[in-house]
Amino acid sequence: MNIFRLAGDMTHLFSVLVLLLKIHTIKSCAGISLKTQELYAIVFATRYLDIFTNYISLYNTIMKLIFLGSSFSIVWYMRRHKIVRRSYDKDQDTFRHYFLMLPCLILALIINEKFTFREVMWTFSLYLEAVAILPQLVLLQRTRNIDNLTGQYVFLLGAYRAFYILNWIYRYFTEEHFVHWITWISGLVQTLLYADFFYYYFQSWKNNVKLELPA
């Protein structure tokens, strides 16, 4: 464990807590893409298949349970909760996210570290996570006034993978074992997808104006 990875995990945790806070306290999911939340639930479900079979550390297991629990409960809230679901903007959240899954699965079957079920599922979850934010970014461009919590959620979600890239650089120089190039590239693509959001987020913070993405 290193400071970059811990910062990444904490940032990721905060992004999830900000979202749960928004949905649970103000009972609203306005501006949040259910498609992105569903993709994230699938990302965690396919990445943490071995949560009960191989034990890495208490921290690792607890964090996996938190990410699994929170992502599925957010999907549940947005689909089933009688108040929250009313604020879900389904006519705007129209990204065909299932079309994202197939290419990721095919790519994972072709390009992976080892052709085993767990390894392919893990690679699939990496590719899927890289593009999971797309429905949310599209929705943000359609949603005129993005509320602060939603902006913070997306910002933290983007920042966590940027910290992971620093973690991979750190591990590359300090440990003989370093992560596979597949991880590097998916993490880089994922972070780059946030680039324009980060730009507008920073602008809105610097000029102290409401965050707005150009359509």
Partner: peptide
């Protein structure tokens, strides 16, 4: 096995 030490991150 090697899956574990390769994927010790979240």
């Amino acid at each position: 096995d090697d899956f574990d030490d390769d994927h010790d991150e979240l």
